[in-house]
Protein backbone atom coordinates (compact mmCIF):
# COMPACT_ATOMS: atom_id res chain seq x y z
CA UNK A 1 0.00 0.00 0.00
CA UNK A 2 2.84 2.39 0.82
CA UNK A 3 6.11 2.58 -0.99
CA UNK A 4 8.53 2.16 1.86
CA UNK A 5 11.59 3.07 -0.11
CA UNK A 6 10.53 6.65 -0.52
CA UNK A 7 11.51 7.58 3.04
CA UNK A 8 12.38 5.94 6.33
CA UNK A 9 9.74 6.09 8.97
CA UNK A 10 10.40 7.99 12.18
CA UNK A 11 8.07 5.81 14.14
CA UNK A 12 6.10 2.90 12.77
CA UNK A 13 3.95 0.03 13.88
CA UNK A 14 4.47 -3.60 13.00
CA UNK A 15 1.42 -5.90 13.18
CA UNK A 16 0.10 -3.93 16.11
CA UNK A 17 -2.88 -5.54 17.85
CA UNK A 18 -4.57 -4.24 20.94
CA UNK A 19 -7.27 -5.65 23.20
CA UNK A 20 -9.21 -4.12 26.07
CA UNK A 21 -10.04 -7.31 27.96
CA UNK A 22 -11.71 -9.39 25.23
CA UNK A 23 -12.44 -6.49 22.98
CA UNK A 24 -10.16 -6.49 19.94
CA UNK A 25 -9.71 -2.77 19.39
CA UNK A 26 -6.79 -2.52 16.96
CA UNK A 27 -6.19 -5.15 14.31
CA UNK A 28 -2.87 -5.73 12.56
CA UNK A 29 -1.93 -2.11 12.15
CA UNK A 30 1.11 -1.36 10.01
CA UNK A 31 1.72 2.31 9.59
CA UNK A 32 4.83 4.45 9.05
CA UNK A 33 4.94 7.97 10.42
CA UNK A 34 7.43 10.06 8.44
CA UNK A 35 9.99 12.40 9.88
CA UNK A 36 9.10 16.11 10.04
CA UNK A 37 5.71 15.62 8.46
CA UNK A 38 2.19 16.03 9.79
CA UNK A 39 0.27 12.79 9.71
CA UNK A 40 -3.44 12.89 10.44
CA UNK A 41 -5.49 9.97 11.69
CA UNK A 42 -9.15 10.22 10.82
CA UNK A 43 -12.13 7.97 11.25
CA UNK A 44 -15.54 7.81 12.90
CA UNK A 45 -15.66 8.10 16.69
CA UNK A 46 -14.94 4.84 18.44
CA UNK A 47 -12.89 3.52 15.54
CA UNK A 48 -9.75 3.26 17.70
CA UNK A 49 -7.80 6.23 16.40
CA UNK A 50 -7.18 7.74 19.85
CA UNK A 51 -6.28 4.34 21.24
CA UNK A 52 -3.81 3.96 18.40
CA UNK A 53 -2.29 7.36 19.09
CA UNK A 54 -1.76 6.34 22.70
CA UNK A 55 0.24 3.31 21.56
CA UNK A 56 2.96 5.63 20.31
CA UNK A 57 3.86 6.84 23.81
CA UNK A 58 2.59 3.79 25.71
CA UNK A 59 -0.18 5.69 27.46
CA UNK A 60 -2.34 2.61 27.03
CA UNK A 61 -0.15 0.89 29.62
CA UNK A 62 -2.17 2.75 32.22
CA UNK A 63 -5.46 1.17 31.29
CA UNK A 64 -6.24 -1.99 33.23
CA UNK A 65 -7.06 -4.92 30.95
CA UNK A 66 -5.13 -3.54 28.00
CA UNK A 67 -3.08 -6.10 26.08
CA UNK A 68 -0.79 -5.30 23.18
CA UNK A 69 0.88 -7.52 20.58
CA UNK A 70 3.18 -6.40 17.80
CA UNK A 71 5.76 -3.67 17.73
CA UNK A 72 5.97 0.10 17.71
CA UNK A 73 9.39 1.08 16.41
CA UNK A 74 10.95 4.42 17.15
CA UNK A 75 13.54 4.21 14.37
CA UNK A 76 14.91 0.73 15.15
CA UNK A 77 13.89 0.50 18.75
CA UNK A 78 10.67 -1.27 19.71
CA UNK A 79 9.25 0.94 22.45
CA UNK A 80 7.37 -2.02 23.93
CA UNK A 81 10.64 -3.89 24.45
CA UNK A 82 11.08 -4.77 28.12
CA UNK A 83 14.49 -3.05 28.17
CA UNK A 84 12.96 0.26 27.24
CA UNK A 85 12.28 2.83 29.96
CA UNK A 86 8.77 4.09 29.44
CA UNK A 87 9.57 7.53 30.86
CA UNK A 88 12.24 7.89 28.15
CA UNK A 89 9.71 7.06 25.47
CA UNK A 90 7.30 9.63 26.80
CA UNK A 91 10.01 12.26 26.96
CA UNK A 92 10.89 11.66 23.31
CA UNK A 93 7.28 11.35 22.21
CA UNK A 94 5.28 14.29 23.55
CA UNK A 95 1.52 14.38 23.76
CA UNK A 96 -1.20 17.00 23.82
CA UNK A 97 -4.67 15.97 24.90
CA UNK A 98 -8.19 16.59 23.71
CA UNK A 99 -9.01 19.05 26.46
CA UNK A 100 -6.37 21.47 27.68
CA UNK A 101 -5.09 19.96 30.92
CA UNK A 102 -2.67 22.41 32.52
CA UNK A 103 -1.57 21.58 36.05
CA UNK A 104 -3.03 23.80 38.78
CA UNK A 105 0.31 25.57 38.93
CA UNK A 106 1.78 28.73 37.43
CA UNK A 107 2.35 29.10 33.70
CA UNK A 108 6.08 28.88 34.29
CA UNK A 109 5.85 25.76 36.44
CA UNK A 110 3.68 24.03 33.87
CA UNK A 111 6.28 24.44 31.17
CA UNK A 112 9.15 23.68 33.53
CA UNK A 113 7.54 20.49 34.80
CA UNK A 114 9.20 17.91 32.57
CA UNK A 115 12.58 19.61 32.95
CA UNK A 116 12.31 19.74 36.72
CA UNK A 117 11.36 16.10 36.90
CA UNK A 118 14.55 15.28 35.06
CA UNK A 119 16.58 17.50 37.39
CA UNK A 120 17.68 20.21 34.97
CA UNK A 121 19.44 23.30 36.31
CA UNK A 122 17.47 26.47 36.95
CA UNK A 123 19.26 28.55 34.29
CA UNK A 124 18.62 25.90 31.66
CA UNK A 125 14.99 25.61 32.72
CA UNK A 126 14.50 29.38 32.44
CA UNK A 127 16.00 29.34 28.99
CA UNK A 128 13.95 26.40 27.76
CA UNK A 129 10.70 27.71 29.24
CA UNK A 130 11.12 30.90 27.26
CA UNK A 131 12.10 29.05 24.09
CA UNK A 132 9.18 26.62 24.35
CA UNK A 133 6.67 29.36 24.99
CA UNK A 134 8.02 31.22 21.97
CA UNK A 135 7.81 28.07 19.86
CA UNK A 136 4.19 27.66 20.94
CA UNK A 137 3.46 31.30 20.07
CA UNK A 138 2.48 32.07 23.62
CA UNK A 139 5.47 34.03 24.87
CA UNK A 140 4.25 37.51 24.00
CA UNK A 141 0.92 36.88 25.65
CA UNK A 142 2.30 35.54 28.91
CA UNK A 143 5.81 36.90 29.37
CA UNK A 144 4.65 39.44 31.96
CA UNK A 145 2.69 36.98 34.01
CA UNK A 146 4.68 33.77 33.99
CA UNK A 147 3.94 33.18 37.65
CA UNK A 148 0.20 33.54 37.41
CA UNK A 149 -1.98 30.46 37.49
CA UNK A 150 -2.31 28.59 34.21
CA UNK A 151 -6.07 28.74 34.70
CA UNK A 152 -6.00 32.48 34.11
CA UNK A 153 -5.43 31.72 30.41
CA UNK A 154 -8.18 31.25 27.84
CA UNK A 155 -8.94 27.77 26.48
CA UNK A 156 -6.90 28.29 23.34
CA UNK A 157 -3.99 29.73 25.30
CA UNK A 158 -4.17 26.81 27.72
CA UNK A 159 -3.88 24.39 24.83
CA UNK A 160 -0.88 26.25 23.46
CA UNK A 161 0.56 26.13 26.98
CA UNK A 162 0.14 22.36 26.88
CA UNK A 163 1.96 22.32 23.56
CA UNK A 164 4.74 24.47 25.04
CA UNK A 165 4.90 22.12 28.00
CA UNK A 166 5.35 19.17 25.67
CA UNK A 167 7.93 21.06 23.54
CA UNK A 168 10.03 21.87 26.60
CA UNK A 169 11.01 18.20 26.74
CA UNK A 170 12.51 18.67 23.26
CA UNK A 171 10.51 15.75 21.84
CA UNK A 172 11.15 14.19 18.45
CA UNK A 173 7.51 13.45 17.93
CA UNK A 174 4.39 15.27 19.05
CA UNK A 175 1.10 13.39 19.40
CA UNK A 176 -1.98 15.57 19.25
CA UNK A 177 -5.25 13.94 20.33
CA UNK A 178 -8.04 16.04 18.82
CA UNK A 179 -6.32 19.12 20.21
CA UNK A 180 -8.85 21.61 18.93
CA UNK A 181 -12.10 19.80 19.64
CA UNK A 182 -12.73 21.85 22.79
CA UNK A 183 -11.74 25.18 21.22
CA UNK A 184 -13.43 28.01 19.35
CA UNK A 185 -12.72 28.47 15.59
CA UNK A 186 -10.21 31.27 16.13
CA UNK A 187 -8.10 29.33 18.62
CA UNK A 188 -8.40 26.32 16.34
CA UNK A 189 -6.99 28.26 13.39
CA UNK A 190 -4.08 29.42 15.47
CA UNK A 191 -3.20 25.91 16.57
CA UNK A 192 -3.46 24.63 13.01
CA UNK A 193 -1.04 27.31 11.83
CA UNK A 194 1.23 26.43 14.72
CA UNK A 195 1.27 22.80 13.60
CA UNK A 196 2.44 23.80 10.16
CA UNK A 197 5.24 25.79 11.73
CA UNK A 198 6.23 23.09 14.21
CA UNK A 199 6.62 20.39 11.63
CA UNK A 200 9.94 21.93 10.70
CA UNK A 201 11.19 20.81 14.09
CA UNK A 202 9.18 17.75 15.11
CA UNK A 203 7.21 14.94 13.59
CA UNK A 204 3.51 15.49 14.22
CA UNK A 205 0.82 12.88 14.51
CA UNK A 206 -2.65 14.31 14.96
CA UNK A 207 -5.95 12.58 15.61
CA UNK A 208 -8.88 14.59 14.38
CA UNK A 209 -12.56 14.04 13.80
CA UNK A 210 -12.53 17.02 11.51
CA UNK A 211 -11.84 15.97 7.94
CA UNK A 212 -11.30 19.51 6.74
CA UNK A 213 -8.67 20.00 9.42
CA UNK A 214 -6.81 16.92 8.24
CA UNK A 215 -6.95 18.33 4.71
CA UNK A 216 -5.62 21.69 5.80
CA UNK A 217 -2.63 20.65 7.84
CA UNK A 218 -1.53 17.10 7.13
CA UNK A 219 0.93 15.70 4.65
CA UNK A 220 -0.26 12.12 5.14
CA UNK A 221 -3.59 10.80 6.25
CA UNK A 222 -4.53 7.48 7.77
CA UNK A 223 -8.14 6.40 7.67
CA UNK A 224 -9.06 4.02 10.44
CA UNK A 225 -12.32 2.15 10.57
CA UNK A 226 -13.44 -0.47 13.12
CA UNK A 227 -9.90 -0.93 14.39
CA UNK A 228 -8.37 -1.43 11.00
CA UNK A 229 -6.11 0.82 9.00
CA UNK A 230 -8.17 1.06 5.84
CA UNK A 231 -6.00 3.43 3.90
CA UNK A 232 -2.81 5.37 4.35
CA UNK A 233 -1.64 7.84 1.71
CA UNK A 234 -0.42 11.36 1.09
CA UNK A 235 -3.32 13.57 2.05
CA UNK A 236 -3.77 15.13 -1.35
CA UNK A 237 -3.92 11.74 -2.96
CA UNK A 238 -6.41 10.32 -0.51
CA UNK A 239 -8.67 13.36 -0.60
CA UNK A 240 -8.81 13.39 -4.39
CA UNK A 241 -8.73 9.71 -5.32
CA UNK A 242 -9.41 7.49 -2.31
CA UNK A 243 -8.57 3.90 -3.13
CA UNK A 244 -10.96 2.22 -0.75
CA UNK A 245 -14.70 2.68 -1.10
CA UNK A 246 -15.08 3.01 2.67
CA UNK A 247 -12.65 5.92 2.65
CA UNK A 248 -14.60 7.53 -0.11
CA UNK A 249 -17.85 7.12 1.78
CA UNK A 250 -16.34 8.55 4.98
CA UNK A 251 -14.79 11.53 3.24
CA UNK A 252 -18.08 12.30 1.55
CA UNK A 253 -19.79 12.28 4.92
CA UNK A 254 -21.67 9.01 4.55
CA UNK A 255 -20.91 7.99 8.14
CA UNK A 256 -19.22 9.49 11.10
Amino acid sequence: MVNKTQKTAHISTENLNLWFDDNHVLKDINIPIYDKKVTAMIGPSGCGKSTMLRCFNRMNDLIPGCKIKGKVNLYDQNIYDSKVDVTDVRTKVGMVFQRPNPFPKSIYKNVAYGLKVRGEKKAKIDELVEKSLKDAWLWDEVKDRLHESAFSLSGGQQQRLCIARALANNPEILLLDEPTSALDPQSTAKIEELCLELKNKVTILIVTHNIAQAGRISDYTAFIFLGELVEFAPTKEMFTVPKDSRTEQYLSGAFG
Partner: peptide, 9 residues
Protein backbone atom coordinates in the same frame (compact mmCIF):
# COMPACT_ATOMS: atom_id res chain seq x y z
CA UNK B 1 -1.99 11.65 32.08
CA UNK B 2 -0.41 15.00 31.34
CA UNK B 3 2.35 14.31 33.83
CA UNK B 4 3.01 10.77 32.63
CA UNK B 5 2.96 11.89 29.02
CA UNK B 6 5.69 14.39 29.87
CA UNK B 7 7.92 11.53 30.94
CA UNK B 8 7.39 11.67 34.70
CA UNK B 9 7.12 8.31 36.44
Amino acid sequence: EASLALGAN
